[in-house]
Amino acid sequence: MIRARTSTRVLSTVLAVGAVAGIGWYAAGERSDEAAPAGVAAPAPVKPKAPDPTLRAGLLKSRELPVERYLVSYADATAEKTAMLTAVQTCMARYGLTYEPPSRPGEYPPPSDNSANLERRYGLADKASAERWGYELPGGDRQPPAWERTTAQLDAYYGKDADGKVVTSVNGTPLPEGGCNAEARERVGRQDETAVSDINAESFQAALSDPAVRKSLADWSACMKARGYDYRTPFEITQGPKEEGWGGSPEAKKTAVAEVECKQSTGLLDVWFTTESRIQERRMAAKKPELDKARAHNQAVVRRSLTLR
């Protein structure tokens, strides 16, 4: 079954509208070029787009794997991270410590909305992207800056020093067991996707050895062979030593386009996606109470997070 991706499962998006000021960044997604008036704090300079919950291009356009209905979305993960940061900062302040990371949660969105990694789960799937980026990440690999917290911050955050000894107080003030991290976690909670993530992993492995997928992979391999490439699966392309920057080289782009064109002509991704979806539906049905319980828990964590941020 082909299922279209929706954004309705992103709980924080629904709850945020009109309820909490200033958290609609993932909907706005634009950089502000307006200069702040003198004496007024400048707005946050960058509001990049969060990953789109719906694939907008390529051979898997608008599709969603069944596990994605339960996997934690980026928006919901960001809601939890933001609440954690606020709670940690509140705790740190009791010890006279600041805790300011170099970027806020949500400022460096990853390429995928959730850990299904549909964008690259079966290798490349978008010809236009393959032509432009090859195997490099579209837009480049934007990472959050490194952050060297001070020893005092780490002692208070973890409640443990660099030698592993428990820290019971900072500046004479008693520290909760596990430090500010544990205190904040107690307040916020943690979204749990263990059960669905296991299905996500198992189905990936099961689909790889499914006869229909193997037959289609052989068709794809034959198509690639006719173009002068010798690969049994798309995953073999990126294997082996590569020069730095290989992914964006003309040679890699040419291979990337061939990979996607052969997927299109053989229908490989239709077979692979449909087979894995069927595997997931079967396993999810067997674990439905567990999955629903985890989702209810996760929704509660997000609701609480939105009130704490």
């Binding site: 690259r120 996500n200 990936f204 492995q205 990126t238 294997q239």
Partner: peptide, 10 residues
């Protein structure tokens, strides 16, 4: 699971 961030990831 695979190079260049392909396949299953956690």
């Amino acid at each position: 699971f695979n190079s260049y961030y392909e396949g299953f990831g956690r």
